[in-house]
Design a binder for these strands. Structure first.
Length: 377
DNA sequence: CAGGCGTGGCC
DNA sequence: TGGCCAAGCCT
């Protein structure tokens, strides 16, 4: 009987996940559209949804909250009113304006894509063409295609996945390939060909304002009568997700070296990897078995190529990355032998107090500078 | 395909 | 407070 029961559950799931199911619910799209017209937030990129503005907003919004993005979007649009001006800027300038927004690979992708578009003379106007741009994946291509060009392409982001997962009471983990495939199919079938821009934004807006992860506002939901999770009174059980990795604790040291004019030595991190391309106070890993001074001596020997004497402990910074909790200790140092040469770093630079802020700095480095009294951050 | 990649806000 | 989350992409 257990086997039969399982098969029935499976069959039931398959039914409820059938792409035709949601799309065939009477007026579902219309109710969603009416709700969106009444409740859509006024956002900078919505007032004038040109391909350039939509593209830039979508890159910035990847894994990033609307409130965080707005000032960055405004600043970028004021600085670079056209994609041509963005393409003509230096990468360091773009990275500098991006500083603090996180996921810095996006900044380089933004710049690279701007140069592609400037070369081609215009944005691609198909999903396939958009997918060729660096930093543009399936979600972003669908968003630009639908919002900027009115193409009936689906989008599937965290919001849409949550909304659909609850509507269907989907037992599949939404963050696994199988669940993603299923949800892309549902989203594709559900897109409203009458107004794909409003439809896609409505799905995301519903997830952002009503169908939120915790304490969803079901009484305000235009789709509440169609929601299987709500019918089961188990809305917060969905979306089901796979296990998360625990953050690991890591330690690091950094050394503050000043010259006779009280300039500070900074280093640019490698393009790839953590905080790629950003500038920092030279430092690195602090192994368990070493004291902070010993670790600092080793790091500076390997990455800056000099022997040092470790001086006063100037401060300590705690910082959280994705799945990583960092404790970083900063010491003042003196060079006892050799001249600083970039080894583990692509570039070193002496920077005075006034020009520090013109470099692309991560929040972490901003904290470090604040801890040693070099900035007001 | 699982894992790397920032930051800030929430409870 | 630590865990979870947010308009993903890339390798």
């Amino acid at each position: 009987m257990i086997v039969n029961e399982d098969l029935r559950v499976q069959a039931h799931e398959t039914m409820s996940s059938n792409p035709t199911t949601l799309a065939s619910i009477p007026d579902l799209r219309d109710r969603l559209g009416a709700w969106y017209r009444a409740h859509a937030r006024v956002l900078p990129w919505r007032s004038e949804p040109t391909p350039y503005r939509v593209w830039m907003s979508e890159i910035m919004l990847q894994q990033t909250r609307v409130d965080t993005v707005i000032p960055y979007f405004e600043r970028f649009q004021e600085t670079f009113p056209t994609v041509g001006e963005l393409a003509a800027a230096s990468e360091e300038r773009v990275l500098g304006l991006w500083a603090g927004l996180g996921y810095y690979r996006r900044a380089r992708a933004l710049h690279a894509a701007a140069r592609v578009v400037a070369d081609q003379g215009a944005f691609p106007d198909t999903v396939e063409g958009l997918l060729e741009l660096p930093g543009v994946g399936r979600y972003t291509a669908g968003a630009i295609a639908s919002i900027a060009f009115g193409i009936p392409a689906p989008v599937l982001d965290g919001n849409v996945a949550r909304v659909l997962s609850r509507l269907l009471a989907l037992e599949q983990p939404v963050d696994k390939p199988a669940g993603q495939r299923l949800l892309w199919g549902v989203a594709e079938d559900l897109v409203n060909p009458e107004d794909p821009s409003a439809h896609n934004q409505a799905m995301m807006e519903l997830g952002a304002l009503v169908c939120v992860p915790r304490s969803p506002r079901c009484p305000s939901c235009p789709l509440r009568e169609d929601c299987r999770a709500r019918a089961q009174d188990q809305v917060e059980r969905y979306p089901i997700k796979g296990p998360r990795r625990r953050p690991k604790k890591v330690r690091a040291v950094a050394g503050l070296l000043l010259d006779a004019q009280r300039r500070m030595l900074l280093a640019r991190r490698p393009e790839d990897g953590l905080l790629g391309g950003l500038w920092e106070v030279p430092g690195g890993d602090w192994p368990e078995r070493l004291s902070a001074p010993a670790a600092l001596e080793q790091v500076w020997r390997e990455r800056v190529g000099v022997s040092i004497e470790v001086g006063e402990r100037l401060g300590e910074v705690e910082h959280v990355f994705t799945h990583r909790k960092l404790r970083l200790v900063v010491h003042g140092i003196e060079v006892t032998e050799g001249e600083p040469v970039a080894r583990g770093y692509p570039e070193l630079r002496w920077v005075d107090h006034a020009s520090v802020s013109s470099l692309p700095l991560s929040r972490l480095t901003q904290k470090v500078l604040a801890a040693v009294g070099w900035s007001d951050v």
